[in-house]
Simulated scan of single mutants.
Amino acid sequence: MKTYLALLIIACSSTVALAQGNWDKTPYQTKSLANDAIKDVFVKTSGGSISVSGGGESPRIEIYVRGNNGQELSKEEIDKRLSDDYELNVSVSNHELHATARRKHEGNFNWRRQLSISFKIFTPKQVATHLNTSGGSIHLDNLTGTQEFSTSGGSLHMDNLAGIIKGETSGGSIDVSNSKDNINLETSGGSIHARNCQGKIRLETSGGSLHLEALNGSITANTSGGSIQANDIKGELITGTSGGSVNLSAMACSLNASTSGGSMHVDMLQLGKYIKLDVSGGHVDLKLPSNQGMTLNLSASKINTAHISNFSGEWEKDHVKGTLNGGGVPVNVEASDNLSISFN
């Protein structure tokens, strides 16, 4: 086992934004990992950001250190604070990189002496990560394998990942792009942006909006406190919000969408196996392809439509039950307000 450094990390939410902006500074310390063939990365900190990039630059770990509230410190002062107040071990064993940082004294710690310590790690592309920080953001890109990561005080950023991707944050937004296979992401305090991803995808937020674009697969995306916007979705989408509107365009999927606090606009280019819409707090605008067979079961305070042909069944002011183009894909809509239907 080779122990490479001794350093550490801090733990105060007041330094979160600072930790996220450290990457443009000169590293406090850099250590090559070129001869270690890293396959697993384990990082646990209490105050800084973590970045892991695969397959590009020469394998290494960089450590960035700043003073509390952005204070610039001399190397001598950093050395002294690290020695007096912090512990950090960075080591490699059996192709595993371990970086663990913590304060020595958890009691009456002088916050003016706090440090923001962040890790930037470059590895081969085929690497698994296990990352945790309570005070910074997490960035992952160009990795294949199992990625497990969490933060209590920062955002999550992912690009070009493949494999099992499981991440959560209690206080930030999530941005994921160009990734695939099994994606499971959750935040309690921010929005989620997902684009150009495929596979089994689960996205959950309790306090923000959802922005989905160019997704393909089995997708579940829910929010308790924001709006939902989606464009160019294929496969299956199950989505809902308790506190906002829903706008879905260029859809070619099976769809289950609901909102308790806003209106819904849905433009279907192509139907999947089913459509189910439930809107209890606003009106619904639904655009359907005119050339597909459907079995309609619609309920609203008032149903409006342009000219419709090839329909058979019962069409009343507040409910519709019957078939279109001979029947086929079930289309079920329940709306407490008006429902407007048009055809592509």
Rank of each mutant, 00 (worst) to 15 (best):
A11D: 15
A34I: 12
C253S: 15
T295E: 01
S301N: 13
E96G: 04
G55Q: 06
G167I: 05
D181H: 13
A194V: 09
H193K: 13
A37Y: 13
G167Y: 09
I38P: 03
I117A: 06
V43Q: 05
T151F: 07
E204K: 10
M1I: 03
N110K: 13
G240T: 05
G136M: 01
F343K: 08
S134W: 02
G327R: 09
F343I: 01
A306P: 01
G272T: 05
S249P: 10
E87F: 13
S336C: 04
N247P: 04
D40M: 08
S224P: 08
F311Y: 12
L324Y: 12
T133L: 04
Q114Y: 15
H95N: 14
M294I: 01
G282S: 07
G326N: 02
T220K: 11
F343D: 00
A335F: 00
L185C: 06
N182V: 15
L237E: 00
S170L: 05
S32V: 00
V52C: 03
A34D: 02
C197D: 06
L324C: 04
T133M: 03
R102V: 09
L296Q: 01
I38S: 00
H265K: 15
D40G: 05
V329G: 04
T100M: 09
S49Y: 06
K302T: 09
M1W: 01
V333W: 08
S336L: 04
D285R: 11
H139Q: 00
F311C: 07
N216Y: 12
S155L: 00
S150H: 07
S227A: 02
G235Q: 10
M158R: 07
S260F: 09
G244I: 00
F122W: 12
W111N: 15
S188P: 11
E186W: 07
D181I: 10
A17R: 14
S173M: 08
G47S: 05
I164Y: 12
L161M: 05
I228G: 02
G153Q: 07
I61T: 11
S155H: 03
T146N: 10
G70S: 00
V279H: 02
Q292K: 02
V284M: 00
E213S: 07
S280W: 07
G21P: 10
I165K: 05
A335G: 00
V284C: 04
V329H: 06
G240N: 09
E62W: 13
K31W: 12
G136S: 03
T169E: 01
T133A: 03
W23F: 08
Y86I: 11
